[in-house]
């Protein structure tokens, strides 16, 4: 029966969520065990008067490559290489454990030597952009969900264009019907700026209602100069402006959700390249 079926499915849902947590716990267990093994191996190397940093260095490089594989996995989606969700969990665990390993390898937060500092700078950029990305990905989707409607990022410009055309048609009609150019002048002085492209980027990003207040303020100031016909047109324009304001919020939040990757991925690539050169130099000069 439908009610009983619902309770069975609820149990399945609980099982599924439980499975995700179990998977994450497993990744943490494996990650911590691996990190302890590396730390132990480095310690034993030091005790044997060998370079423990070589052990942690190779381990760090392996971790970086494993982290970079996540991007490759996304391109090989057809291959049965587990789910992106599992890869993401592994990415988070490995990325987090990379920091203590780095500290052990570098011997502190900030190494000596110009090249090593460049490497450290890259490492911190990747790490901090990753943390920022994680936080943004946890916070911003909820904010997006609370906005009206769902819009695909690439379609925002065309939606703004459509809104602008509708507003301009309303303004023209309002001017013709009323025989006064108040609406037209107001559009050119204020709304044209607003509808030209996404606005109030930072306000939307930080959750301020400045955009909506700006619209209501301008519309309220104008209303006293309009007759009934023009006011009806203005009401429609206000509604379209508020819709545009929602698109602006989508634009701001979705832009940030994409932009952090433009820091994270290039710096990660640079880090791997620098790390390989570092490895080469260390191997050459250690002989």
């Amino acid at each position: 029966m439908a009610i009983l079926r619902a309770s069975v499915l609820r149990n399945r849902l609980v099982l599924r969520i439980g499975r995700e947590w179990a998977q994450l716990a497993l990744f943490w267990a494996i990650g911590i065990a691996g990190w302890l093994l590396v730390a132990l191996a480095a310690w034993r190397a030091e005790r044997s008067l060998r370079e423990g940093a070589l052990v942690t260095g190779y381990a760090l490089l392996a971790m970086m490559l494993a982290l970079a594989m996540f991007n490759l996995k996304k391109r090989l989606v057809a291959l049965p290489l587990s789910t992106a969700r599992a890869w993401m969990m592994a990415h988070l665990v490995i990325g987090t454990l990379g920091f203590p390993l780095y500290l052990q390898h570098a011997g502190g937060l900030w190494p000596g030597g110009h090249y090593e500092r460049a490497l450290a700078l890259c490492f911190y950029t990747v790490m901090l952009s990753g943390i920022a990305g994680y936080v943004l990905q946890r916070l911003l989707p909820r904010r997006l969900t609370h906005l009206e409607g769902e819009v695909i990022y690439e379609r925002i410009p065309s939606e703004v264009f459509t809104l602008r055309e509708r507003v301009e048609a309303l303004v023209l009609k309002g001017v013709q019907d009323a025989g006064a150019d108040t609406l037209g002048r107001y559009y050119l002085e204020s709304l044209h700026w607003f509808f030209r492209r996404p606005r109030f980027f930072l306000s939307h990003l930080f959750g301020s209602a400045r955009g909506a207040r700006w619209i209501r303020g301008h519309v309220g100031a104008l209303r006293r100069y309009l007759n009934e016909t023009e006011r009806a047109a203005l009401d429609q324009i206000e509604s379209l402006a508020l819709r545009k304001n929602q698109l602006d919020a989508h634009y701001a939040l979705q832009s940030v959700l994409k932009l952090w990757l433009f820091v994270h991925i290039p710096s990660a690539v640079l880090l791997i390249v620098l790390a390989f050169w570092h490895l080469l130099v260390v191997n050459i000069y250690s002989r």
Binding site: A84, P141, T145, E150, I152, Y153, Q254
Partner: peptide
């Protein structure tokens, strides 16, 4: 789940 979806479109690309 829109509260989890980061609008990356990895699903569309896949």
């Amino acid at each position: 789940d829109l509260e989890r979806c980061v609008r990356c479109d990895d699903c569309v690309r896949a």
